[in-house]
Amino acid sequence: MTDAVDAFVAGFIVLSAVVGVVTYVTLLERKFAARMQSRIGPYRVGPHGLLQPIADALKLLMKEDIVPRLADRVVYNLAPIVFLIPGMLIFATIPFAPGLGVADLNIGILFFLAVSAMEIVGLFMAGWGSNNKYALLSAMRAVNQIISYDLPFIFTALVPVLLAGSLRLSDIATAQAGLWFVFYPVIGQLAFAAFIITTLAAENRVPFDILEAESELVAGFRVEYSGMKFALIQLGEYAHMVGTSFLGALLFLGAWAGPGPAWLGPVWFLLKAMGVFLLVTWVRWSFVRIRVDQILAISWKLLLPLSLLLLMATALVVVLRSGPGV
């Protein structure tokens, strides 16, 4: 029974940390975007706007909860929760330092990919349950996009798996002790670039944000949500984003490796994950939205064959080196 209690406590700590980090990531993004556009960003609430996320949360807590009259009530109310759960669960397998994590499964990365793919269920529940044509169109586009981008995303995430010869996330991290996979000649850089592109698509960020294209669909699948339910959807989305950033830092940037004593490991990991997050945000605020058909064409005609080729090339390299995994 103590194992169960330990797991419960560990889960509670990680969940609280995740909610804290995710809340402040919104501020980081707003500040970063503001600087890119020669603005200051949130500045009024607290020193340098540091209390802004808390003010936002309080505002959303006190807002009226509106349910559309013709909505599918049960589906509509459950959707934010179903959307949030995968966003939180993906943190379960991430080791934040050697031996420090909730569950270091031997199929860690597969669990991550499987659970993060479940997010779409909550998304189309929201889109359908709202009984709003914009929300429905948005959910449709999301389904389209997920079907197209899941495969290249999985293939690029498998490149580090092949190089490390293990599906366990902590093994992948320790395999990079000598050389971070992003510095692996040719394969590493290509895989990292493909990972960033597919991450943008998986998180529905500009230039792949057709599902919440403000000019056509108002706010996409969350258009009918208000108050705390809206906050839950936002939380789920940002949690997913932060989780994928952690995955990127773990797969390509050596996770907790860094100078200084070992206890600095989680700090390095967090900094690297934030680096990946800022890279994605940088792309988001620099590019324009591309059309639906272009998005699908990029995935099926370019990314999928290329990521498959990359995966086969990686397998060939691993076999020729007859390194780990053989």
Binding site: I107, L113, A114, V115, A117, M118
Partner: peptide, 9 residues
């Protein structure tokens, strides 16, 4: 994991 990835997802 495969069940989630292929069927539920």
């Amino acid at each position: 994991a495969v069940q989630l990835l292929l069927y539920a997802g």
